[in-house]
Design a protein around this nucleic acid. Sequence first.
DNA 1: CAGAATTGTGAAAACTACCTCATATTACGG
DNA 2: CCGTAATATGAGGTAGTTTTCACAATTCTG
Lengths: 199, 199
Amino acid sequence: MPRRSAKSLTRQAKQARAKTTVNVIVDAAAQVLIREGYAGATTNRIAERAGVSVGSVYQYFDDKDAVFARLIDREIEAVVSIFSAGTGIPEESLMSALRRLLTVAVETWSYGPQLYRQLEHVPDDALRRRVTEAKTLLAGFIRSLLETHRAELRVRDLDVATFVVINASTGLSTNATTEMYGEPLVETTVELLERYLIA
Amino acid sequence: MPRRSAKSLTRQAKQARAKTTVNVIVDAAAQVLIREGYAGATTNRIAERAGVSVGSVYQYFDDKDAVFARLIDREIEAVVSIFSAGTGIPEESLMSALRRLLTVAVETWSYGPQLYRQLEHVPDDALRRRVTEAKTLLAGFIRSLLETHRAELRVRDLDVATFVVINASTGLSTNATTEMYGEPLVETTVELLERYLIA
DNA sequence: CAGAATTGTGAAAACTACCTCATATTACGG
DNA sequence: CCGTAATATGAGGTAGTTTTCACAATTCTG
């Protein structure tokens, strides 16, 4: 017997008012998640923070984790759009491109690395898979960027280079403090990567 | 009215059997924490994984978080012993020392950085403070190592250098795949750090 | 502006996890 | 070996969270 995916009983937001409510809830979820962690991010607290009743959350989301799924989608889309925009400029040097991408990423990343760290700890397989997919997508972008600048590269193995670029960057940015953030963070990261990739 | 700290009602392990049980429980806690995250690390699951009943957990631990506290203490001690051992060798070059520390860390760190990250998200203030203390301790070791080799260093700001060494290393190792692990990982990390710190 | 569709509410049912405790089993000392 | 202390058990009480649902309020449509 083929398992049929249960039809979602939640409504589709049709009026502008409802769409606002959905966004307010997702924003509230992000904020509560950062402040309280997953364990403290209860539906009631999210609703309270959003200024709506618990029931409204369940008007648009199947369950609690669906709210976080929506949040993840939003974040992924933001990252993807950043890196898609990066493909346009021709004749741009590798390090210039990396600096630009990192700068935009740091600036745009709406809730910063804190949210990202918390999202990785949401205990839902589907969500974790989405995060992994996003990482793969990101790796593809970086790899093709490195490929177009292969001539400048010191490192031979593009897979290793991609691995280093992504994980050194995220390693620095996810642990960024309030002191070490913004431009200094980007410059430090660029310096680290440049000395490894080129020269 | 001064708040008196409640006397612990848990027993002290007196027989060898009991000490084994305690260790089995702490190990199980680490494994479940890595697999399921804090939210999924229920007392029953930990007990099941340990092959004991829930009651046994409460024979030796005041509450759930006390298990994680013990785990944190064990991990901190492991890290401290690794890095203390690193202070002994004189006339060792900076990169040689870093390579050795990374190698031992990768080999010895019983549950790897995954556990470390999960422990950071345990929602208990006392525990979080302990994790922060451990980080500070680690940063201290790295910083003093860098300081003794200041002459070799290209980077001026030791705080920035320490930040980079710690977070680039953990960034690479936390995302290490099965292909990219062990010696290749260590060598890549060393290469990345050497080009940043020296030359 | 009436009636329908959509959106919003919050008390309470259903569920889950932590922790207790009365009891059983195992190990130790004399 | 027997009594006592130590260790182990697991069903169930309690507290807190998720989810539902009957109903209220708002917005849209003709």
